[in-house]
């Protein structure tokens, strides 16, 4: 519902209007350009209007979901998955020593202000309401990977006062870093602690910048985006590639998809199901 409203309001009508108003205030003589620029999603039958499309190779789904096979998660897999995510998305590492020459007089980083997209937890932290004194031994020591659940009913989307966090039609809950005002209401709203805030400029703490993905400015919230930028180029998410088959991503609404096939065969649980957020990340036990 929320999503539909957003699309109806923003596409062409309101955004186009604001934009046109803004431009004409600045440059009244640029009428042709205004037409060209603000012709958003108009279908573009006329050849002299610009057309915007997704890439042909893009991977698409009705509702993206993730299945994590806990039996295949080892410490090595965890390490390479977390590293792959960090390198792909320019996530700062507060243990990294900043380059003195490039960034002189940098104040020390506070570990508790760090940024995580996907990270390791124990069973009793990942599933705190399912704590059990007679829990099978193997689960006590097993590493659990936790990340954004891309909830169907995402509390963070509901909380955001600017629609900077929104739900795409394909189910990915994503951040518009350009729009975020840094109020951190979404962080209070997320029941999974999956969101991080940029308390400071991240650049000094990134060893090697991946030019394929932006760095974030200070003062905005961020989280896992299910590698939307890779899916759009026809690539699997970085964590899936690094996971040696432990993580699978696919269309939850497509009965023929691999994730659905796995879910049909195995007993899988989701985090804090009782909250009704409908997470899209499943854990095979």
């Amino acid at each position: 519902m929320i999503n539909k409203g957003e699309n109806f309001l923003s596409k062409s009508n309101r955004r186009g209007f604001l934009k046109a108003a803004g431009i004409s205030a600045v440059a009244i003589g640029a009428a042709p350009a205004i037409k060209a620029v603000s012709a958003v999603a108009s279908g573009g039958e006329a050849t002299n209007l610009p057309v915007k499309t997704a890439k042909i190779e893009a991977l698409t789904a009705k509702r993206w979901g993730m299945v994590i096979d806990t039996s295949k998660i080892t410490d090595e897999v965890v390490e390479s998955v977390v590293a792959a995510c960090r390198n792909t998305h320019n996530i700062p590492d507060f243990d990294h020593k900043p380059d003195e020459k490039k960034y002189p007089n940098i104040r020390p980083a506070k570990k508790m202000q760090e940024i995580e997209w996907i990270w390791e937890e124990h069973y009793h932290n990942a599933f705190p309401e399912m704590e059990d004194e007679f829990l099978a031994d193997k689960f006590k020591s097993l590493p659990f990977l936790v990340t954004c659940n891309h909830c169907k009913n995402a509390p963070c989307v509901q909380a955001c006062p600017t629609k900077a966090t929104f739900k795409r039609e394909d189910g990915i809950v994503i951040m518009d870093f350009h729009r975020c005002i840094g109020c951190r209401f979404c962080m209070a709203a997320c029941p999974y602690g999956s969101r991080s805030f940029n308390f400071r400029d991240a650049r000094p703490f990134i060893e090697k910048i991946n030019p394929e993905f932006p760095v974030r400015s200070k003062g905005v919230v961020e989280k896992c985006n299910l590698c939307a930028e890779r899916l759009e180029r026809g690539l699997q998410p970085a964590c899936v590639e690094a996971s040696e088959g432990a993580i699978v991503v696919g269309d939850l609404e497509d009965p023929e998809s691999e994730v659905r096939a796995i879910l049909k065969e195995n007993y899988a649980i989701r985090r804090k199901q009782e909250l009704g957020t409908e997470p899209s990340v499943y854990y095979i036990m």
Partner: peptide
């Protein structure tokens, strides 16, 4: 206090530019 708490205070008016009735902050 709200402005002091914002990470991006210069974008504060986004709350008015993109009004979002489902957010209690609005």
């Amino acid at each position: 206090f709200i402005v002091a708490d914002l990470g991006q205070p210069v974008r504060m008016l986004n709350v008015l530019l993109y009004p979002t009735p489902n957010s209690m902050l609005f």
